[in-house]
Design a binder for these strands. Structure first.
Lengths: 350, 350
DNA sequence: CTGAAAGCGCTTACAG
DNA sequence: CTGAAAGCGCTTACAG
């Protein structure tokens, strides 16, 4: 466990200067500050008092908390299970609340006694993730993933399985397949949309942008989505909904409108945990285990911290899988439509 | 912010002795240790290094984590929202991992830099809650509630609304009403069962213990429960299921067995957050807002900590409400039964 | 078992 | 802007 003295030696400055950098005193040149912060991270410095040592891993979120979502809840459950296998504790931090504008993230984390960060990333928050990674503070990204030279992510690849899902629909005979995703585009959704396009392309089906939807990832938006989808001039016969709450909301709304899934509409959903089992009919879905993602992010971060010497985190990429259940079937013989007011239409001819 | 010196003065000992107590040195008489720990809590002592002060609120759970459950996820979301209104951070602690057998909970929390604890209580963990409260460490209980002279709880009263729920079923004409609850009995479930008994009693209906069920609070157990309920010699026509995942599992399984809810069976469920909207038909339910409970527990604890001087937490009791949706209706004209293999039975006469 | 005192990690006026 | 040194909170061998 490095002390301020070792950091000072490593950086070739006095302990007073190291202290000033840690406490963000303005009386330090940018050059010296950068050199010291570099040493802080490469020595794995962490403040301690007597025998007591702060050993926290931070779950960092930015913007409004989504911790109640099934995805985040499962992530957290996995992290807490992993926590029990280490001697690190998990603290939840929101830098936008009390990170001072003039301090770096490393300084912010040191002030909190944090030794590594799990970044619950979103597309909006990518810049924060990049900044933290650029400071070389130990970190794992989760939730969103993107190219970065030093930031590692824990995620499940859902591109191949998304392609399987669309091919499954095509094999069943569907030609008009809609796509819906969270309005917040992230690495996973980019992959899923790419898979959708490639699968349609491979089958010689053109992409119709009018049945590609972006909606907020909430149940009520899934309900509204169904009404929108079914009221276009030529409604799709199948849809791939890449977010669990949207898929659940859509399936329940179908029953409210008197539709039968999969007879009137085939639905491939997405499941981060267990959602597919909570709707009727049990949802055909691309599935990932968010609990495991949280677990792996925590363990990998703990490993890098314990190793010390500025050891980097590695990517932890797990597998998703495509599970055929009861919400998909052949396309309807008669095409079905629903007017905005809920009136049900059935075409007379094919 | 009290230092070790003030605690020493308050307790009438040297700073060395205070330090020994905090670090749990065996070389202190029980009498002195008790006196010092008393002073530590009444001075609101918290260890600090230089300007840095640890200001954590701990979410304490014991036994296997249930943080992924909808109830716990909603609690946590509420706590994190509340956190943003204070300058305290939330750390998740599992004392069974690293609390040393010979240290008190106060010592354990000081070692972690924790100033107050939210105790995610269960019936199994009541003794831990009592011990922490007896040490007068600032704490709020949540999840389970029971009588204790110094421990305050955040909970929603669900007794009155549970009684409304049963009376609603009786008014609809039901005479044979089953009851199902989490196998882990806690203060809330005691209330709900008492309400069930009182409402039946008030209507002159006897309690039949053979249709009172205790099952694990998981979806699969809700599915199994339905099979059990419907295969008793004279199946109930309605059931009050006091846990969300059990209620959801039961309602979905009914569709798998070809039953129609509420035609064949009326179901009153329980909802901590939003579950009632995720099943079809939308569930008639006693509802509470777990997000709000988490929020209030955090705010009340933060208030007591900021007030200092050993200020006590107060109970934060909120309201539940009974919401009539689509899973309840009049009893079936013909009584319905399901054999263990799934065969559906309908009685010929009344 | 307890306190006075030396010592550690860190911070901060003071000197240059 | 930086370091040597005094000082704070805390811990711990040492003395009794």
């Amino acid at each position: 466990m490095a002390t301020i003295r070792q950091v000072a030696k490593h950086a070739g400055v006095s302990i007073a200067t190291v202290s000033r950098v840690i406490n963000n005193s303005p009386a330090v040149t940018d050059e010296v500050r950068a050199k010291v912060l570099e040493s802080v991270n490469s020595c794995g410095y962490v403040p301690n008092v007597g025998r007591r040592t702060t050993s926290f891993i931070a779950l960092v979120y930015s913007g409004p908390s989504s911790l109640g979502s099934p995805y985040d809840a499962a992530l957290l459950e996995g992290m807490v299970q992993a926590m029990d296998l280490t001697d690190l504790d998990l603290v939840i931090l929101n830098p936008s609340r009390d990170k001072r504008p003039d301090e770096s993230y490393t300084q912010f984390f040191l002030r909190k006694g944090v030794r590594g960060a799990i970044l619950r990333s979103t597309v909006e928050g990518r810049q924060i993730c990049r900044t933290i990674a650029d400071e070389k503070f130990p970190a794992m990204g989760i939730g969103d993933h993107f190219e970065h030279p030093t930031l590692a992510f824990a995620y499940a690849d859902s591109k191949t399985t998304s392609r399987q899902a669309i091919e499954h629909l095509i094999t069943l005979g569907h030609q008009r397949i809609a796509f819906a995703a969270n309005e917040h585009e992230d690495g996973d959704h980019v992959d899923r949309y790419a898979a959708y396009c490639e699968a349609l392309d491979g089958a010689g089906i053109g992409i119709d942008r009018s049945i590609v939807y972006r909606v907020p990832a909430r149940r009520v938006n899934g309900a509204q989505l169904l009404r929108n989808v079914m009221s276009v001039p030529k409604p799709p016969t199948a849809i791939y909904v890449t977010d669990p709450p949207i898929a659940m909301g859509l399936i329940n709304e179908a029953r409210n409108l008197g539709m039968d899934i999969p007879r009137d509409l085939s639905v491939v959903g997405f499941d981060d945990n267990d959602s597919r089992n909570f709707v009727f009919p049990k949802m055909t879905a691309v599935c990932q285990d968010a609990r495991q993602l949280g677990h792996e992010a925590f363990i990998e971060l703990a490993r890098a911290i314990e190793a010390g010497n500025g050891e980097r985190c590695q990517h932890r990429i797990s597998s998703s899988w495509f599970e055929i259940n009861n919400s998909t079937g052949p396309p309807p013989v008669k095409s079905v439509g629903i007017l905005p007011d809920g009136t049900r239409l059935e075409a007379v001819g094919p």
